[in-house]
Computed example of a mutant assay.
Amino acid sequence: MFQRISNGWSLAKQSWRVLMLDKELLVFPIVSGFCCLLVLASFIVPLFATGYVDVVLNDGQISPEESQNPIAYIILFAFYFVNYFVIVFFNSALVACAIIRFKGGDPTVADGFRASMNRLPQIAGWALLSATVGVILKVIESRSEKVGQIVAGLLGAAWSVTTYFVVPILVVEKAGPIDAFKRSVSVLKKTWGESLSANFGIGFISFLATIACFVPIGFGIFLAFNEQFVLAGALVACGIFSLILVSLITATLNSIIIAALYLFASEGEVPTAFDNQLLKQAFVNH
């Protein structure tokens, strides 16, 4: 167990090295986040009209009246589909660039977008399946406040875990949604320990960085109470910007690690910029 944690920590650090080689990879989560805000803005009126805006923004509960409204579910399904499409499109572009780097190339942002454009049918198919699962989970959740929440939460967690490698599979194998799901489960069986420990390493670093970001925000609030508004505003703005940056870097590092683990598990190929011995140790017990 400790060896896996150590391997995961090392994988996280080597993913950082890859990001330093290709800082432009941060473009993809930035544009993805902006596009998701546009999607939400475009759906805000129908979501308000059906009462589903609280579900989207706050993961709120669906009232009995709303759960009987088929139009509400259609709108929610459409929102999920477009949102998932945007997220998977940009994640695919990021992973494609990471794989180019792993194979010794020098990727550009254009390479990433080109790869995603070439996989539009696969991305749309996966977004369709994900939206369907999302709506089904909401239906289950709406049936009972307590039991529905627990069941939907467990199923949602299982879905997130089993679809961990879907994006690199879409990028490399151009698989359809069902085949991508099956392949993701297959790869996960080989890499679950390393995937978990690598995410733990990144999550722990992200947690520490997030705490550090709240320090200037806290000082800013303290200064605001003492009517030092200019300095307070600057500190709060600095803290918020840092939080956004940490979130973007964390998302990018996660995608890099997913691509690296997939490449090694599926092809037995050690990605360039990753330590050969490290990955061999990571999979020695599988």
Rank of each mutant, 00 (worst) to 15 (best):
A158N: 08
V172I: 11
D106T: 10
F90M: 07
V147N: 01
Q122E: 14
M117D: 02
G125N: 13
V86A: 13
V166S: 03
N91D: 10
K146D: 05
I99K: 07
A157D: 00
G104W: 07
N91Y: 05
P177S: 04
V88S: 02
R101L: 04
V167D: 07
F113Q: 07
G153E: 01
V135D: 08
D111F: 08
D179T: 09
A93M: 11
T108M: 05
V151P: 13
A131N: 06
P177Q: 03
S160T: 11
P168C: 11
L129K: 04
I100A: 03
V135M: 11
I140R: 05
D179A: 14
F90S: 03
D111A: 02
G156L: 05
F89N: 06
L137S: 04
S142N: 06
Q149F: 08
I100K: 15
I140Q: 04
V139T: 09
V166L: 03
T132R: 01
K103Q: 10
Y84E: 14
P121Q: 07
G105S: 10
P121N: 11
A157G: 02
D179I: 00
R114C: 01
I150S: 08
F89C: 09
G112E: 13
A93E: 10
A131V: 01
E173W: 02
M117L: 14
S116A: 14
I169K: 06
L129M: 13
C97Q: 15
K182P: 04
A124C: 13
V82N: 10
I100Q: 12
S130P: 00
E173H: 10
L137P: 03
K174L: 00
F113D: 11
L129Y: 07
V82M: 14
R101M: 02
Q149P: 00
A96G: 06
T162W: 11
K174G: 08
I100R: 15
Y164S: 06
V167R: 09
V139Q: 06
V133E: 01
L129I: 05
Q122W: 03
N83Q: 10
K146Y: 07
